[in-house]
Lab assay of single mutants.
Amino acid sequence: MGFKLLSKLLVYLTASIMAIASPLAFSVDSSGEYPTVSEIPVGEVRLYQIADGVWSHIATQSFDGAVYPSNGLIVRDGDELLLIDTAWGAKNTAALLAEIEKQIGLPVTRAVSTHFHDDRVGGVDVLRAAGVATYASPSTRRLAEVEGNEIPTHSLEGLSSSGDAVRFGPVELFYPGAAHSTDNLIVYVPSASVLYGGCAIYELSRTSAGNVADADLAEWPTSIERIQQHYPEAQFVIPGHGLPGGLDLLKHTTNVVKAHTNRSVVE
């Protein structure tokens, strides 16, 4: 069995187990497998329904001669939608809004960016022009300005110390501490036991640490421990890039980060 097929099978099995364990909360999309990078042309966006009122959005972007996937989250909030992270750029984010209108038909009224990198804030200006209120932590807003990236308009308070959590509509926002970046936030959907790890969490097929220019490698494993301790009931975990899975993604990420750190020390 090929690795790609095995990865998709694991996603399907995880979703099936969740649907059985929580039949009222989960209505997993039966329309197909989780979209992969090879299936999404740059400039297009796919939506994948995880649970009743919960979707991931998947886009792709060219970077350094390669094409990478990027995940975000959409959560229903009454007759409105909360968006977590842009679709990595203005063109993708405009396509995301169009796809949401086509498939869901509810307005996106608020959006949260989970850290300051372009795959999370690139497209904020498109959201703002569409009347979406954009939010991020003060740290993310400051770092985005320093980096020359787009800056969300509103500040999220109460997320300055490791372990801080605040309720934001249908989700809980959690600051686990520094990891992929010093400002990275985690998003949890309690009604569906869905954990969105953003770039602080890796997919299972990833074996290298990737972009760690703004990471705190020493603190990252401790931050992941905080996530595990705060959300032990999480059933569906979405990484910032690639295929979702279960809580095993947290341990896998820790292993990859520690291996990278150990290699760096040896070198």
Rank of each mutant, 00 (worst) to 15 (best):
V256I: 06
V266E: 11
T261E: 10
W55V: 03
S162C: 13
L13G: 05
Y175S: 14
V126F: 14
Y135V: 01
P107K: 15
L143V: 10
Q103P: 03
N211Y: 14
H154L: 04
V67E: 09
Y175N: 06
S181C: 01
A178K: 12
G177L: 01
F63V: 05
I104H: 02
S193W: 07
V166W: 11
L250K: 01
V75A: 06
Y175T: 03
V11F: 08
R142D: 11
V265H: 08
G242M: 02
E267T: 15
T86L: 02
T114Q: 00
A259E: 09
P176V: 02
A94T: 13
S56R: 08
Y68I: 07
V42F: 06
V121Y: 02
E219V: 09
F236M: 11
Q61C: 06
E150M: 15
S205R: 09
A144W: 03
V124I: 04
A165V: 12
N71C: 03
L156E: 02
A213H: 13
D119E: 02
R128H: 11
V42S: 10
W220I: 00
M18E: 04
H241A: 00
V54P: 01
Q49F: 11
G78W: 08
S223V: 07
E44H: 11
H57Q: 11
L13C: 10
L217K: 04
S264P: 13
G240K: 02
R226N: 15
G78C: 05
A129V: 11
F116W: 15
E267L: 07
R141M: 05
S191C: 02
E44Q: 06
G197C: 14
G32N: 05
V189I: 04
N184A: 02
A51R: 05
R206L: 10
G246R: 07
L204C: 04
E267S: 11
Q235L: 10
L159S: 02
I227W: 02
E267K: 09
S181Y: 03
F168N: 02
Y135C: 02
Q228V: 07
P35H: 06
A25F: 15
A179V: 03
A15S: 11
S30M: 11
E225H: 04
H260R: 08
E233I: 13
S223L: 03
I227T: 05
T222W: 11
L247N: 05
F3G: 07
I58T: 06
I104F: 04
G240C: 00
T207D: 14
H241Y: 02
A178M: 12
H180P: 01
I100G: 01
P69Q: 05
P35S: 11
G123P: 02
D29S: 08
R226G: 10
N211L: 10
K251G: 14
A130R: 09
A234F: 15
K4L: 04
E233W: 09
S113L: 12
V126D: 04
R206T: 11
S38H: 06
V194D: 00
V126G: 10
V189Y: 14
P35N: 14
R110E: 14
D52T: 11
N262E: 09
A234S: 13
P107V: 13
Y135H: 08
P170N: 12
V256E: 15
L9S: 10
V124Q: 04
E33G: 09
V75P: 01
A98S: 09
S264M: 12
D164P: 13
Q103C: 10
L204H: 09
Q103D: 15
H241F: 00
A66R: 06
I20K: 14
H260I: 10
Y48L: 05
P244W: 13
P138R: 12
L173R: 00
G123Y: 02
D183S: 00
A87W: 00
E172T: 15
A111G: 13
A111F: 13
K8M: 09
S137T: 06
H57W: 01
R76W: 08
G246T: 07
A130G: 09
I40V: 07
A259R: 09
P69I: 04
T153A: 08
R206I: 14
G32D: 10
N184H: 02
Y175G: 02
Y12A: 09
G89W: 02
E157N: 15
P239Q: 02
E233R: 08
A133K: 12
K8I: 06
E172C: 03
S31C: 13
S38N: 09
I50D: 02
I50H: 06
G197Y: 02
D216P: 10
I74M: 06
D164F: 13
V257E: 01
I227Q: 02
R120Y: 01
I20V: 09
N71K: 02
S191V: 09
S62W: 12
P138G: 10
G122E: 08
V112H: 03
Y12M: 08
S162E: 13
A59R: 03
S38P: 05
T182H: 06
L10S: 07
A179P: 03
D52I: 05
F26R: 07
L5N: 04
V266K: 14
K251Y: 15
L173P: 03
D248S: 12
Q229S: 05
V126N: 07
N92G: 13
P41A: 05
Q61S: 07
S181T: 09
L106E: 14
G122C: 04
V108C: 03
V54T: 10
E39V: 12
